[in-house]
Computed example of a mutant assay.
Amino acid sequence: MTPPPSTSALRTAARLILGVFLLFAGTGHLTFARAEFAAQVPAWLPLDTDFVVVASGVVELVLGSALVLAGRHRVLIGWVVAAFFVAVFPGNIAQYVDGVSAFGLDTDRARLVRLVFQPVLVLWALWSTAAWRDRRSR
């Protein structure tokens, strides 16, 4: 298996920024923002809220680390990060539908704006890792 072609400095910087963002969010899940993240876990999810917060925090730490250290596996990592952002989207929808305030999202408008940015995160993960461009290089 040959490594995928390299990416531009801009894509690399975007990948590193996204990785740091996920490392920060994962740390927040496990420490200073645990209650805020717990408020966002949908009531319909048949799992313990604290388990969901901790597990998603650990996943974010792993994904953030992977983005920072991506190397030759960046295409796969890009797809996994994009899938993670898709997987947590129902929770964001639930926050909007249920009117749950967390992280300063205390109005329907603010929660709706957040929904718009979730697809941006998916695209950011795919673009910054060139996962879509290099999907056939694996």
Score class of each variant (00 low, 15 high):
A110Q: 12
V97S: 06
V88D: 13
V62F: 08
V97M: 11
I17H: 11
A25R: 04
D108Q: 14
F24L: 14
A35M: 06
A25N: 13
L23D: 08
F89R: 10
F117C: 03
T129Y: 02
A131V: 03
F32M: 11
F85G: 00
A35G: 13
G64S: 07
E36S: 10
G19C: 09
A130K: 06
T49C: 02
A9L: 11
R15W: 09
L61Q: 07
P3L: 00
P4D: 01
S6L: 10
Q118Y: 08
S137Y: 01
G99E: 06
W79E: 06
G71A: 03
T2K: 09
D48M: 03
W44G: 02
N92I: 08
A55V: 10
V97H: 13
G99A: 05
E60F: 04
M1E: 09
R34L: 03
P90R: 09
R11A: 11
L16M: 08
L45I: 11
V120H: 11
T7H: 14
L10Y: 09
V68P: 07
T12M: 09
T129R: 07
R136Q: 11
V20F: 03
V97E: 10
F24Y: 14
L47W: 11
R109Q: 11
L121R: 05
L105F: 10
L61N: 12
V62P: 00
I93F: 08
P4C: 02
S65I: 10
V122F: 08
A14E: 04
L23Q: 07
A66L: 10
V75Q: 00
G28M: 05
H29M: 04
G64C: 03
L10E: 14
V81F: 05
V86G: 05
L126Y: 10
L18F: 11
Q118K: 07
V41I: 15
I17E: 05
I77F: 00
F32P: 03
W127Q: 02
F24N: 09
L69I: 13
G57L: 09
V68R: 04
E36H: 07
G91S: 14
F85M: 12
H73M: 02
G71E: 08
V54Y: 05
R15S: 03
D50K: 01
S137L: 00
A33Y: 15
V75Y: 00
V41T: 06
Q95K: 15
L126F: 05
Q40L: 15
G28Q: 06
P46Q: 08
L45V: 13
F24H: 12
V68L: 15
L23P: 00
W44P: 05
P4N: 02
V59Q: 06
V62A: 15
L61V: 05
L30R: 08
L23F: 04
Q95L: 12
A13Y: 08
A66W: 01
A14Q: 07
